[in-house]
Design a protein around this nucleic acid. Structure first.
Lengths: 243, 243
DNA sequence: ACTTATTTTACGGGAAGCCGTAAGCGCATT
DNA sequence: AATGCGCTTACGGCTTCCCGTAAAATAAGT
């Protein structure tokens, strides 16, 4: 494939060039807002990152990551949103968190910056904890500055968390929901009677499956969060986008 | 106030100029994402709208609207987001829908374009119904084109709804929640036992207040939406941002 | 003012959920 | 093999919720 060869060659040339770079070279943006993509490309250009590309779908982003590895011209940085609107095109990856997971499997060393309007510190905290992202920039009133600061920080190997979040992350860290918990809660939110859930869990090869265990787990979750009723829990999980 | 005089004069000059304009002249953007504001200003400039301004807070937006009227140089168009992140600065208006309501009280003729990432057709439908907005552009994979199309359409006095929404608005229009309904559902989502709700409703001067009526109303709502359990209803209401 | 219709309330039986106790099971240690 | 520990399951009573029926109250029509 001559195209790939050419790309790899170009990349090597860059790497070998004597001009000391102090910024990322190849950046991939995964973001479904076209306006945001345009603006982002422009901002990167101002930082002399000319080799930036974007994908409007998670699947496309993954493909580009894979191809870039094949071509020997891997991306240095992935900037991704969290939520992608489903517009009918069936996608195997539907959100930014899943995209990060899969991308990491292919290219563990890639730096990841999340750029999203997710305002919930608990969710963001999870990203740093479980996905080891390198930075988070909240789409907001200072995002133009934050983005530049984040790029600089991450390039130097630092993590980037905006001040506003750093505080409240500690405050709010209430409870970790396991997959098991989420499965149960989703069933309830979907209208299932609790006595139907054991069968469902068996089907999903999750355990424990007994009604008693489910009751107990639910009681524990609610107790830890200070809730008394399932409805409260559902509301909470919806707010935190756990379900 | 010399500044205001000058502005008004400038505005009159423009209006009287022989050059036939086919686009808005004075535009106000209410949007809390700085990046989006920058991009929007640029886009408007491409359309030769140079007299565009933005506000990061709803209250600021309202102030500018008021001032523009005082100065005799009113805005032709308000472009606003729906959700504004609360960053601690206390605001009397906290979201786009409320902003539109208040702005309309001061300047009923102003055109309103909502530019948001709200994906729920029911919510958007409400905006056209209750707030009589002139257009809706969804921040998404085609928003750069949509925005320009919307501006052109609205300028010609047409309404603008993207195709993708036009369809599903009809499909999904399921149920209208009254204040009474919302009050009950909020109580449940907050963890209240149903037998505590009568007292609450009396306190709020809402009726009927009997437990039986509440049970009946809940049953009816769930029946119409095809739900069987409260938890399902809570999940639904959270998704639709009814609570 | 009387009847009719609709809404609201009261009540009661059955279903679902909640919660504590105790029995069952697997697993590691000795 | 026996013991102890933790997790899972089974069961029973108690509460809350669900839903139907009927009485009471309110609104509407003549």
């Amino acid at each position: 494939m001559p195209v790939h060869r050419a790309q790899a060659w170009k990349y090597k040339l860059k790497s070998l060039s004597l001009k000391a770079k102090n910024m990322f070279e190849r950046v991939l943006i995964a973001e479904d807002q076209q306006s945001m993509n345009f603006w982002m490309l422009q901002t990167l250009k101002e930082l002399e990152i000319t080799d930036a590309h974007y994908a409007c779908y998670c699947d496309d982003a993954l493909t580009r990551i894979k191809n870039s590895l094949k071509d020997g011209a891997p991306f240095d940085l992935l900037i991704t949103d969290l939520s992608f609107v489903d517009d009918g095109r069936t996608q195997s990856i539907s959100n930014g968190a899943d995209l990060i997971k899969v991308v990491r499997q292919h290219q563990p060393t890639i730096k990841v910056l999340v750029f999203s309007s997710e305002p919930n510190p608990t969710v963001v905290n999870m990203l740093f904890d479980k996905l080891a992202i390198d930075g988070y920039v909240h789409k907001g009133r200072t995002d133009t500055i934050d983005l530049k600061a984040a790029l600089a920080a991450i390039y130097k190997g630092k993590k980037f968390i905006p001040e506003a979040f750093r505080v409240s992350i500690r405050q709010k860290n209430a409870f970790k929901f396991s997959n098991y918990d989420v499965a149960i809660i989703e069933q309830i939110a979907g209208g299932a009677n609790q006595n139907k859930i054991p069968d469902y869990l068996k089907q999903q090869n999750m355990k424990p499956t007994s009604l008693s265990s489910i009751e107990k787990r639910l009681a524990q979750i609610k107790d830890e969060l200070g809730f008394k009723k399932n409805e409260q829990l559902i509301a909470y999980c919806k707010d935190l986008k756990i379900i």
